[in-house]
């Protein structure tokens, strides 16, 4: 347990500056937009920008991981000379990144809600539907961030492996690999096998996708949409496999 907490705390220190910079950007941006929306008399602007900022957090984890991994890449012997498994070394980074993402997201969400209340004091939010919308947005952001984050870690590790054997050509090969895997993913999902693996288990899922914002009202109406559980299960299994392949590469193939 002590080695995990030591690793986790170290990971926080590695990327602390990035997190603080993002939070500072969140705050400056939200206050700036709030002041501008008062001057231009555009209600909801801060909340809308807050929503856009929240969605941009989908890219937080991959960028966070890339910064963290590149920092370790300059001193690989220090990171890899450690009896802990590759999955723990990478897992500490991913969990740290997720925690940092949530911290930044909470800052943006709280500032958005405060700005909304200050800008439109007479409109009462449909709070139950706001929570549903929040949960929906959070799930989309986390799923997108985790997917990109795990793939970034895989490609970074593949680059480290290839670098030993082909030197500077490794970057080109990894870029080609990214293109090939993306193309294959798109092609495979359209095949009969892909549909059999992903396109099943439809359930009616509550969706707050219909939103109406006017000067007088803020309405979020909910409906249900058919949602394939099979897709989630397939993507989850794929991500777990990629995570463990990455860990194996780190344990067995990355050289210092």
């Amino acid at each position: 347990m002590m080695n995990w907490s030591g690793l986790f705390r170290k990971e926080f220190r590695v990327t602390r500056t990035f997190l603080f910079a993002v939070i500072a950007f969140d705050i400056v941006m939200m206050i700036g937009i709030f002041v501008a929306s008062e001057r231009w008399e555009v209600p909801y602007l801060t909340a809308i920008v807050g929503g856009v900022l929240a969605f941009m957090h989908m890219f937080f984890l991959p960028i966070y991981l890339l910064i963290s991994l590149n920092s370790e890449g300059r001193k690989l012997h220090l990171w890899l000379h450690n009896p802990q498994s590759g999955s723990r070394l990478i897992g500490a980074k991913v969990l740290n990144g997720l925690l940092a993402l949530l911290i930044s997201l909470v800052v943006v969400s709280v500032l958005s809600l405060i700005a909304f209340n200050l800008e439109t004091a007479d409109i009462v939010l449909p709070i139950d539907n706001v929570w549903l919308l929040g949960a929906y947005v959070l799930a989309v952001i986390l799923a997108g961030a985790l997917t990109m984050g795990i793939w970034v870690t895989f490609y970074w590790t593949a680059y480290q492996v290839l670098k030993t054997y082909i030197g500077r050509w490794a970057l080109l090969v990894v870029l080609v690999l990214i293109g090939l895997i993306s193309w294959f993913g798109g092609w495979f999902s359209g095949t009969r096998a892909g549909e059999a693996l992903m396109d099943w288990g439809y359930v009616q899922f509550p969706s707050p996708l219909s939103m109406e914002v006017t000067q007088e009202a803020f309405e979020i109406s909910t409906s249900t949409v058919p949602f394939p559980i099979g897709n989630v299960i397939f993507d989850t299994i794929l991500l777990v496999v990629i995570f463990f392949v990455t860990s194996w590469l780190l344990d067995r193939k990355v050289e210092v």
């Binding site: 012997h77 000379h81 590759g86 344990d251 067995r252």
Partner: peptide
């Protein structure tokens, strides 16, 4: 393997 680090202390030249 890399995890032999539990038996080996390594001081790098870097």
């Amino acid at each position: 393997t890399r995890r032999t680090a539990d038996k080996v202390a390594y001081l790098s030249e870097l």
